[in-house]
């Protein structure tokens, strides 16, 4: 036969001399492979950008009454700030997930179909913001962000990360762990953004549901680790965002604000604390 294993061992792998023994002749799974002190910290790609998530169910599904004031506020803010908008999904994503779940489909399929609802909302927001410079940003055009900001645009993108069929299964149920919160947060982390703000329909995180328990306490500020340790039954942001924050290089903080209150976004962008701030240690 043409070959056998022992002979092949002498057919060398074509290596590249890296001048870096740590990377030169190892698999990349070796623990401690990277002597991290050898490398500087990673750069911030777009440090002036503010990444703002517009909630699907919380904002978009409320229609004109909630969306129009927010659109006007964003248009005014964009004159002073670079704002990148990520769109959430909402009730139509839930309907699609319900159908997929009923059909016994796996997590990867749910993640793939979830993108479409988020894309609808991104396109709707683009039409509303077009006259103020709103532009729909395909994930494939992500590298064009500097141009868009240079000319004063307000890029609007799908909140869902592009994992789709590659979304990993979780230990609890089949709803994808990475949805629009995760995608928007990771956008801020990659860009090394100035801020990451989630616009939702409540003031932030409470100890309990204040609609049911008037003595529920508002949590203005909490560490991601602490919040994870509380092991709450429900959360204000996707759990995976908190887990990612613990290891993040840049996006070490995010703020959840109530977008139904006019002026909140303006104040949050000015650095004010108007909702719940979640931070890494």
């Amino acid at each position: 036969m043409r070959s056998n294993g022992s002979k092949l061992k002498s057919s060398p792998r074509k290596a590249i001399d890296l001048g870096a023994p740590a990377l030169g002749d190892s698999t990349l799974t070796v623990q401690g492979l990277l002597d991290e002190s050898r490398y500087e910290e990673s750069i911030r790609v777009l440090p002036d950008v503010n990444v703002v998530k517009i909630g699907g169910q919380s904002i978009m599904d409320r229609g004109r009454a909630a969306v129009f004031p927010l659109v006007e506020e964003i248009a005014a803010l964009a004159k002073q700030h670079d704002i990148l908008i990520g769109a959430g999904g909402g009730t139509r994503a839930r309907h699609a997930y319900s159908l997929a779940l009923d059909l016994d489909l796996p997590t990867g399929v749910l993640a793939a179909i979830g993108v479409s609802t988020s894309r609808q909302n991104a396109r709707i927001l683009q039409m509303l913001l077009a006259k103020h410079g709103g532009i729909y940003l395909n994930p494939e055009d992500f590298e064009k962000l500097p141009l868009y900001f240079r000319v004063g645009c307000i890029p609007i993108m799908v909140g869902m990360p592009p994992y789709e069929y590659w979304e990993k299964p979780t230990d609890r149920g089949r709803i994808p762990a990475n949805r629009t919160d995760s995608g928007v947060y990771l956008t801020a982390e990659f860009l090394g953004a100035r801020s990451c703000i989630f616009v939702k329909d409540e003031d932030g995180l409470y100890t309990e549901d204040p609609k049911k328990n008037p003595r529920a306490k508002f949590i203005p500020r909490i560490a991601a680790r602490e919040l994870l340790d509380m092991d709450l039954n429900d959360l204000v942001v996707e759990r995976v965002v908190l887990e990612n924050m613990l290891k993040a290089a840049h996006a070490r903080e995010l703020q959840v604000i109530n977008g139904l209150v006019p002026g909140n976004l303006t104040r949050a962008l000015a650095g004010e604390h108007v909702g719940t701030v979640i931070y890494a240690e």
């Binding site: 009730t91 139509r92 839930r94 997930y97 159908l99 959360l235 759990r239």
Partner: peptide
């Protein structure tokens, strides 16, 4: 302002609720 829902098993539910 009112939210418009489509009835489904996940309507109004937090997708982060462990039971859900």
């Amino acid at each position: 302002p009112r939210r418009t829902h489509i009835p489904s098993k996940l309507m109004r539910e937090s997708l982060l609720d462990k039971g859900v």
